[in-house]
Nucleic acid binder design. Structure first.
Lengths: 343, 343
DNA sequence: CTGAAAGCGCTAACAT
DNA sequence: ATGTTAGCGCTTTCAG
């Protein structure tokens, strides 16, 4: 089907294509009667400008890309939701890519967004959440950020990236305060991988707090494991095994996220332990999962609305050539529920 | 930053832009030595063709749009995930839009995808899942589908749309068979709205099965309510209230999805009822939620991989101008767990 | 096999 | 205020 172009509109309205362009953009002044005529013809044909052509002749496209590590995780689902809301409100076009799955896929998405001439790209999770940045990745990011601003929820060492991230330390402080004030001193920190920045930071902070409190730091209380239900189940079993082999039993568990906490809960239950009577459990993220399970999970949550909005704002400001804060932190908050109790 | 264009590459390689284009597309034959030289220069500059320009001169863009009703719901998260995998595998570019929230937003996304000259658009949920299609919406879809094939998981009356949808009837058959074989005859069907096609179909089928079995159909067993936890909680409370007012107590509940089942479970628990001893509960969708809660939920699941793949395949076939099946059905399967038991 | 040149649809000087 | 005219970067006949 032949697309109607600005020329056709111009012809029928008896004006030049430039004038049509002017009424569309609304930027320049056009005499009232001409504007009317043009608008009428536009309506008649349901004409919509071709953004490819616009993007080609302008320097911007209005597209803000968002690459999320895993849309199946409600954590990302929530952020994307808030992000989209703000992007849409400001008249830009969100282009979401989820399901990274692999490094190759992430790179491919990055390149596609570059090829599309997105005005800014947001990176949530994935390679940019690694503790030590892959130099090849930093290279790619550098190349892209030469022409397109990049915002991340993690970090990319050796590349110009804006950051909007969760204040992991504050979150751990909140969690530990809560547990300590409840009388717990044997606290395990399950799941996640040391190679992931957010996890690494949590572990470091956990350790410092313990030291500051004069409490023993036990390596055996920290176990690597996936960020899903299965992972939580596995690491909790491993912890239980260690206890049966003589490890001082923990009275509280902090799971790396709600998903893994669900696994922890299940494993504990299979072991005949009651939560929170025998062992308190808490987690990070405060997604709907934490209120879906029984006992409901105490969880460290973030202001998701602010998170998504900040990401969007930073991206748009940068896209519009304005300056933006290089690093914004999203505060955490404690949501105490039934899964934690005094010792 | 000045982008390197095909001209610059051509200049440095000592060939014409047309030749560069040829080596990029790989379509036409180019003499080996020239190809080598061009490829070298391309590598030197990390040159990547501008898809806007490509899209403008070609008739296709390689973009397949996907509009999901709600990315926060793991049901959509899962489908999007599988969809993206397939789209990526076939070398196309997925552009996901979630969080519809409102009719206006959905329309806006539809228009943006149109403006981008997407090669096909997939609609999952939202207005295309309404029982009676809004004529204005059908109009819009018609206008767009003039130039871009549209695939939906629902339907749009009066518009050319391809369909890939869940076989709701088969799902209800499975659910009812399961419950009936367990000896249940007082079965309630909670949540959802009659105005939503998938819900409507489930209700109709539920009713037919009851009739066919010679079992009484009670209107009071069907209660409208949202598709989330809160909704499930509310409708279950309402049902309990009706029972206290004399309604024959149901021995089994079918919730419209896992989310609402969680609410049902909670309400039942607050009421002091045990699941499944006092009342069986089951749901649709079989997301990770159904194995996260206790008791684990019996749920009707779909082959999500096939679902996402079929959506992608249909979209790509159509984008490539091939014919596609007008209507594909995704089969359902029963996942029996501890939330349902014999009477 | 390869180059020249005409678009694709729109914008942005530059004139008028 | 408005028309003319170059591009934007790439593809695709059409010659050769």
């Amino acid at each position: 089907m032949k697309q109607v172009s600005i020329y056709k509109i111009a012809g029928e309205a008896g004006v030049s294509p430039a004038t049509v362009s002017r009424v569309i953009s609304g930027a320049a002044n056009v005499r009232e009667d001409k504007r009317k005529r043009v608008e009428e013809v536009i309506r008649k044909y349901d004409y919509r400008p071709n953004v490819l052509a616009q993007g080609l002749s302008r320097t911007n496209t209005g597209v803000i890309g968002f690459i999320a590590a895993d849309l199946e995780n409600p954590y990302y689902g929530r952020i994307v939701h808030e992000f989209e809301k703000e992007i849409d409100r400001r008249g830009f076009t969100p282009v979401i890519c989820g399901s990274i799955c692999s490094y190759e896929r992430e790179v491919r998405y990055l390149e596609k967004l570059f090829d599309m001439r997105a005005d800014a790209i947001v990176l949530a999770g994935g390679k940019s959440d690694e503790l030590v940045t892959d130099p090849e990745y930093a290279d790619l990011i550098n190349r892209i950020s030469d022409s397109i601003p990049i915002i991340t929820t993690g970090k990319v060492d050796g590349a110009r990236c804006y950051q909007v991230c969760i204040d992991e330390m504050a979150g751990v402080d909140l969690a530990m305060d809560h547990l300590l004030s409840l009388g717990h001193t044997n606290i395990a920190l399950l799941n996640g991988y040391a190679g992931v920045k957010s996890t690494y930071e949590k572990r470091v902070r956990y350790r410092s707090i313990l030291k500051k409190q004069g409490l023993p730091y036990r390596e055996e209380y920290i176990i690597d494991g996936g960020y899903n239900i299965e992972g939580g189940h596995q690491t909790m079993r491993e912890l239980l095994k260690r206890v049966s082999e003589g490890l001082e039993p923990p009275t509280a568990i902090i799971a790396i996220n709600d998903f893994s906490a669900v696994g922890v809960l299940q494993s504990l239950q299979e072991n005949g332990s009651r939560v929170p009577e025998d062992c308190s459990v808490m987690s990070f993220d405060n997604t709907f999962i934490s209120v879906s399970v029984r006992p409901r999970l105490t969880s460290i949550g973030y202001n998701y609305e602010l998170f998504g909005q900040s990401l969007a704002e930073t991206a748009i400001d940068l896209a519009e050539g304005k300056e933006a804060v290089a690093c914004r932190k999203i505060p955490s908050a404690l949501h105490a529920r039934e899964s934690t109790a005094g010792i």
